[in-house]
């Protein structure tokens, strides 16, 4: 539980640094009446409401917020994502392709650029390089 907190804290600190405010894609902007929505998240038995309140959500954000979604996804899934990127297949990699609007064979592109993309642990750099790969593959990514 404590470690989940660390995971979430890191997501939070990143989100904060990137200034993804509560108007982002996340739950933070889900407000109800005048009070803030308790639907911000908790895990099983622990409360990280504020952390999650700022963490970006997933789908249906407008395009300008795609980078925020991507950053949060990369930050929270970094361990699994790096592994699947090196393998060239996996569900997390497919999730990434969905966020950046790429087809399934995006995984192969990521694999071939693995060393460049993951040369640094910084979420922002990883995300930026992923976007570069996407932009350089108009056939795979829309």
């Amino acid at each position: 539980m404590k470690l989940l907190a660390i995971l979430l804290m890191s997501a939070f600190s990143f989100a904060h640094a990137a200034e993804i405010g509560t108007a982002g894609c996340g739950l933070g902007n889900v407000v109800f009446g005048t009070e803030s929505q308790v639907l911000a998240a908790t895990t099983n038995g622990s409360s990280y409401t504020q952390l999650f309140g700022i963490t970006s959500g997933t789908s249906n954000c407008v395009d300008s917020q795609m980078s925020a979604q991507l950053n949060n996804f990369v930050e929270s899934n970094k361990i699994a994502l790096a592994k699947e990127a090196a393998r060239g297949e996996g569900e997390t990699l497919a999730g990434l392709a969905q966020i950046v609007g790429c087809k399934a064979d995006f995984g192969t592109q990521i694999k071939s650029h693995y060393q460049q993309i993951f040369s640094n642990d910084s979420t922002k750099e990883i995300s930026t390089k992923i976007m570069q790969v996407a932009q350089n593959n108009p056939g795979t990514c829309s």
Partner: peptide, 16 residues
């Protein structure tokens, strides 16, 4: 009740 991207749950339960 709370809503949270499912990938958090997968990372927490499956992986961690």
């Amino acid at each position: 009740f709370s809503a949270i991207p499912y990938y958090y749950k997968v990372r927490e339960y499956n992986d961690y």
